[in-house]
Simulated assay, not measured.
Amino acid sequence: MDGWEGIEEFVAVARTGSFIAGAASLGVSRTHMSRALARLEDRLGAQLLHRTTRRVLLSPTGQTFLDHCIRLVQERDEAVALIRDQGEPRGDLRITCCVALGERFIAPVARQFAKQHRQLTVYLDVTDRTIDLVAEGYDLGVRTGNLPSSDLIAAKIASRRSRTCAAPAYLERMGTPEKIADLNEHDCLTGTTLQWHFSEKGDEILYRPRPVWSCNNGYAVLEAARDGMGICQLPNFYLNDAVQSGQLVPILEEFAPPEEPIWSVYPDKRHLSPKVQRFVAALKGTLPKAMARPD
């Protein structure tokens, strides 16, 4: 018996909500659909659909199974298209990235990518939770810094630099720190990063500030620094405008940390997928310029 039997039929019925519409979408008869679904449920030993006189509903088992079946069908179609050298991205592209990068940089790239590839549906999950790409069915993640050891494929797509800054009014009131240890005597403003990064004579130095204000939103930390509440360390894309306008002053520049890499990471089975290849290329072509410090 064909291991694929019933999979595509199940997806079609689940998506359209009826056997008749599902059969029409595949160009087969309603009888074929019913028999294929019945045999699939027999093989699984589980009921996937609740059938009523008016509509078809997914069982809890069917809902769980559906997500896997959709990806199976999409990956089959992508593999066939790749071999045929058609290569047009199609199906779903599921991306995850942190909030700081996602809202300002990744979302515009993903939006433009969706406009260019009309056979593709792009899902962007902006969250600071570290998502298991394989277990949760994501095609691609965007991550920063040193990556933990894993089976994921990583490609560097850009880098970002952080600076330590404070408002002129704060520095006039509290003085300007000359050494990293001087931060112990200052008011610090922190975000999601618990440790600040510095570098001295090529060695990385980690400093754990004791904040007077902390928020998991970089713009809120930026506004606190502008308001003269204390010293912050943030990526340049938060700080550039405020530094250029004189609202913030960079400090401890001789101890500035090296650039932090930004990676695209994806499961190894996705590396030949046209949608992943092209989106990674779009990120590489867009992010470095978007995140560059203005002249």
Rank of each mutant, 00 (worst) to 15 (best):
A114I: 02
K115C: 12
K115L: 14
Q116R: 12
Q116W: 03
Q116L: 10
Q116D: 14
Q116M: 04
H117R: 05
R118Q: 14
Q119P: 05
L120S: 05
L120K: 03
T121H: 09
V122D: 02
V122Q: 02
V122Y: 04
L124V: 03
D125Q: 07
D125E: 11
T127H: 08
R129I: 03
T130A: 12
T130L: 09
I131G: 04
I131H: 02
I131D: 01
I131R: 09
D132R: 03
L133H: 04
G137M: 06
L140Q: 10
V142D: 04
V142K: 04
V142P: 01
R143K: 12
R143Q: 15
N146Y: 07
L147S: 07
L147Y: 10
L147Q: 13
L147D: 07
L147M: 14
S149I: 09
S150W: 02
S150T: 11
D151R: 09
D151Q: 13
L152I: 07
I153Y: 12
I153P: 12
A154Q: 00
A154N: 01
A154W: 03
K156G: 08
A158Q: 02
A158G: 05
A158S: 15
S159D: 06
S159N: 11
R161N: 10
R161P: 00
S162Q: 06
R163K: 12
T164H: 03
C165Q: 03
A167M: 11
P168Y: 07
P168I: 08
A169T: 15
A169I: 13
A169Q: 15
A169S: 15
Y170Q: 00
Y170E: 00
L171S: 04
L171C: 13
E172L: 04
R173V: 11
R173F: 14
M174L: 05
T176W: 03
E178R: 13
K179C: 03
K179N: 09
I180Y: 02
I180A: 08
A181S: 12
D182V: 01
D182S: 05
H186S: 06
H186C: 14
C188H: 01
L189E: 02
L189W: 00
T190K: 07
T192Q: 07
T193N: 06
T193W: 10
W196D: 00
W196P: 06
H197W: 06
F198S: 07
F198Y: 10
F198P: 01
S199F: 01
S199P: 00
K201G: 04
K201T: 14
K201W: 01
G202V: 10
D203H: 15
E204V: 15
I205N: 02
I205S: 02
I205E: 00
L206M: 13
Y207H: 01
P209H: 09
R210D: 11
V212F: 07
W213K: 08
S214V: 06
C215F: 04
C215I: 03
C215V: 02
N216Y: 09
G218V: 08
G218D: 00
Y219W: 08
A220G: 09
A220I: 10
L222K: 07
L222W: 01
E223C: 12
A224N: 00
A225C: 09
A225I: 09
R226E: 14
R226V: 11
R226I: 11
D227R: 13
D227Y: 09
D227K: 07
D227T: 07
